[in-house]
């Protein structure tokens, strides 16, 4: 395992860890904070390997120690994951016990707590003392998506290292270099911060048809046709699959955003450049507040879609909203 990708994506986090190690200023507890897919776990393994690896250029990622760490098989590295839904006090008690014993192998002991925000109140408070007066030569790494979900007293006892999402530009560039259509690359970069997810996104077989059907909606609007009826026709292909609905909504949202940007004369931000004509014409027939309202509706559907709403009804409602136009400007 090499850490090049980690170094590339999270350079400042790696810098903090490496500098601290070099200056022998490693803190006894760290919170790795960042969205899913920001390589927090990789960084935790990097941290452990850095402390334990004996190679000259640490961490080598190839020696036996590094490999064992990578496979969660090193006795000095203690993993805690939520066993069911939460991390319980019992888990933390085991941790206390484990760490009061001397290490099996040389070097420091490292505990990695994944989803640390899922510790319940007892577990968090039990962890507090562990962090306050840690056993010598031990390190705790708390992996969490949002550090503010941890107790404030935990936060102040640990150093928080921030893992940022991959910038859209990097994903876009990565996709275009592999030969993806620039529009799709832009769209993918906007919808996800995962390189893998972005690749999946552009390779989705229905992507082109979906874009086309979104385009149809706005064309129908310009032709003053009924959007509800039009949507009725395409809905059967659409609404059966949750993934497709999400994809469709993503496209719709960014199309709508394009219209808003077009209306504000901010053309460089537009993603669907080939439809610029439609975008400006739709924009001319609506007020900005109407467009914003519609966009909010779309985003609300996207959030609520996971909560068992009547998707069909929500979409019909949206289509009705989309049919409105600003009569004073006609």
């Amino acid at each position: 395992m090499t850490y090049n990708r980690l170094r590339e994506a999270q350079s400042s986090a790696v810098q903090i860890i490496e500098n601290s190690y070099k200056n022998q200023r490693l803190s006894h507890a760290y919170i790795f904070e960042g969205d899913a897919g920001t390589m927090k776990r990789d960084a935790a393994i990097f941290f452990a390997s850095l402390c334990l690896c004996n190679a000259e250029r640490k961490p080598c990622g190839e020696c036996q120690i590094c490999r064992r760490i990578n496979h969660s098989a090193h006795p000095n590295v203690y993993h805690i994951k939520p066993s069911k839904k939460n991390i319980l006090k019992e888990d933390i008690r085991l941790l206390h016990e484990e760490f009061s014993k001397t290490a099996l192998e040389t070097g420091p002991k490292i505990t990695i707590i994944e989803h640390a925000d899922r510790m319940n109140a007892y577990a968090s408070n039990a962890l507090l003392k562990f962090l306050e007066e840690p056993h010598p030569n031990t390190y705790a790494l708390l992996l969490v998506e949002d550090a503010s979900l941890l107790l404030p007293t935990i936060q102040s006892r640990a150093q928080t290292i921030h893992f940022h999402r991959l910038p859209g530009a990097i994903i876009e560039q990565h996709l275009t270099t592999t030969g993806v259509d620039p529009t799709l690359a832009k769209l993918a970069a906007q919808t996800t911060a995962h390189i893998d997810a972005a690749e999946n996104f552009v390779n989705h077989p229905d992507l082109y048809t979906l874009i086309e059907s979104v385009n149809q909606i706005y064309e129908a609007f310009l032709d003053q046709a009924s959007l509800v009826l039009l949507f009725d026709k395409i809905s059967s292909d659409l609404l059966n699959d949750e993934l497709i609905v999400e994809l469709y909504l993503d496209i719709l949202i960014h199309y709508q955003k394009d219209i808003i940007y077009g209306k504000m004369d901010h053309y460089t931000k537009i993603i669907f450049e080939e439809h610029q004509d439609i975008i400006t014409r739709v924009g001319a027939q609506k007020t900005t507040s109407m467009l914003l309202e519609e966009l909010e509706m779309m985003m609300a559907i996207k959030v609520n879609q996971k909560h068992y709403i009547n998707t069909r009804l929500a979409f019909d409602n949206l289509m009705l909203a989309l049919e409105r136009r600003n009569h004073s400007e006609e």
Binding site: Q15, I16, N23, S27, A158
Partner: peptide
């Protein structure tokens, strides 16, 4: 208002910058 937060942050900044 948290002294410990401040010192932790200082600690972290010291580790970060050369």
């Amino acid at each position: 208002g948290g002294m410990r937060d401040a010192i932790s942050l200082l600690d972290q900044v010291v580790s970060y910058s050369n």
